[in-house]
Design a protein around this nucleic acid. Sequence first.
DNA 1: GGCTAAAGTTAAGCGTGCTTAAATATAATG
DNA 2: CATTATATTTAAGCACGCTTAACTTTAGCC
Lengths: 220, 220
Amino acid sequence: MTNISKEDYLSVIFKHKDQNEEIKATVIAEMMNISGAAVTDMLKKLSKEGDVKYEKYKGIKLTKKGENYARNMVRRHRIWEVFLHDIIGVPWEKVHDEAHRLEHSASDELIDRMEEMLNFPEYDPHGDPIPAKNGMIPKLRKHVPLSCMKPDSVCSVVRVNDFHKEFLNYISGIGIKLNEKIVVEEVRNFDKSLRINVNGSSFDVSQKLADNVFVEIVTI
Amino acid sequence: MTNISKEDYLSVIFKHKDQNEEIKATVIAEMMNISGAAVTDMLKKLSKEGDVKYEKYKGIKLTKKGENYARNMVRRHRIWEVFLHDIIGVPWEKVHDEAHRLEHSASDELIDRMEEMLNFPEYDPHGDPIPAKNGMIPKLRKHVPLSCMKPDSVCSVVRVNDFHKEFLNYISGIGIKLNEKIVVEEVRNFDKSLRINVNGSSFDVSQKLADNVFVEIVTI
DNA sequence: GGCTAAAGTTAAGCGTGCTTAAATATAATG
DNA sequence: CATTATATTTAAGCACGCTTAACTTTAGCC
Ligand SMILES: [Mn+2]
Ligand SMILES: [Mn+2]
Ligand SMILES: [Mn+2]
Ligand SMILES: [Mn+2]
């Protein structure tokens, strides 16, 4: 088993844990753009190596060992993202893909050195928490999808999903960024689309877009 | 054919060209720590893709296409080395290995951005020239292996071979670095070992060590 | 509970980049 | 030039991470 492949599987499983139900093989297959058969195959190997607890037709769960490995990969990824964004100036919508390749190549010492240069950041450029060397994961402010907000409410951006370039490019184009205030002016029942106001300008956005922006409620 | 593998083969072939005779399959195998059979195999594929001109039992030569690809890989490698060394502070003896992994993962745009941050460096931390975006390769000062120097001569370090960590660690320990002055105090005929003076201290070094340090002659 | 749709697994096979062992071509030497 | 040593290529096979197609289990629904 190659490290890159293993690391990608473990990261996907670990990141799903945020949502707190056991991940399904189908979801892994979708996230990684591979067949279900490939997932079954790999789960057997990960299980044999002791990174995943897996019994066929039953659930998929990281072992302590696998969880540690995965958490470190997520750490590596997010430190790269901050480094690329803050030090090298890579645009917001490009850091994820670039980091996704670099995360497998740097030594842990290099990652630690970068973290130090960045002054031990707690969140990546999309608002995701960065696991510390000791395993601690910073807490996120209480947040909900923008799509849940009611008309005439006000909120502030806490986190955005980082895996779709076009989405990131679009929202940054209309002024949405971390900690930006959003006023919800209108919510249409028939398609759940919203009219929002960002920094003085109004925009109409789909429910799908609003599903991927997570906000802290300021005024209900 | 995976990119990483292809890129490593092309880099090895390209770097050998510095020494200006056609590379032998055996040399590729040694440099990459693989069997001769594997090299034959890959040469066929590289030939089919038009990166290498190859006829069995005859020579191995990069095509224009292959040379461009390879030169860019060497560029990527060396820019990483400077970046790791100068910006992140990775120690001299570790930059090569780290860069060797990172060189396959960053986008060309990221490389260009790093190059800009570094103010378009001409040489990497070991004195090797960095090919520019347009393909130009900076000239090196005229240099010879330290092992060729005569007793009582003085020279200055232009370049060192970067592929052996222990060697780099050792020479940096005795004060050898780029542009450092070396006084050759004595050369022993029976084993070609040298007594050299670096920054006021004297050391005995083997011919093998001196073969890997390249110097500009200051005083014969 | 029985039936069906969805999820998951197995089987067979493919391309890649290696390996070792055997065969063959080239180079070096007397 | 003949012989031997070395370099290179071929052949067969292996581990990996995938694929599609067929099969099995589980979950959802009446
Ligand atoms: Mn990311
Ligand atoms: Mn992120
Ligand atoms: Mn190097
Ligand atoms: Mn170098």
